[in-house]
């Protein structure tokens, strides 16, 4: 899937995972897509859910098979 921006948050732990993603989304326009690389465990369990709560659209989540996941998010109106 094509994306408008890419962010790797495998080097940080929650809640900084969410914080970095949130700030990255602030810089996008509505409808643009952020490609996110995140770790298995707490990040993949929490981040997609939190982003949905913020009103963004979670498009696809893919298991990269190496302990990380890739998440595609579409920015929606709220922030």
């Amino acid at each position: 899937m094509k994306s408008d921006a890419f962010l790797d948050i495998t080097d940080v732990v929650c809640p900084i995972t969410f914080v970095k993603t949130k700030v990255a989304l602030e810089d996008l326009d509505d409808g643009q897509i952020l490609e996110l690389r995140l770790n298995d465990g707490e990040p993949v369990q929490n981040v997609p859910r939190s982003l949905k709560d913020e009103g963004h659209k979670v498009l696809t989540l893919e298991d990269n098979g190496d302990g990380t996941f890739t998440l595609w998010i579409e920015k929606a109106g709220l922030s």
Binding site: V12, P15, I16, F18, V19, K20, K22, V23, E26, E54, L78, S79
Partner: peptide, 21 residues
Amino acid sequence: LTNEQLERYSRHIILEQVGGK
């Protein structure tokens, strides 16, 4: 914001009414 600022102010940034902006 630097990585350090993202961490330092994380509890602010999480708030809907604050954010990175």
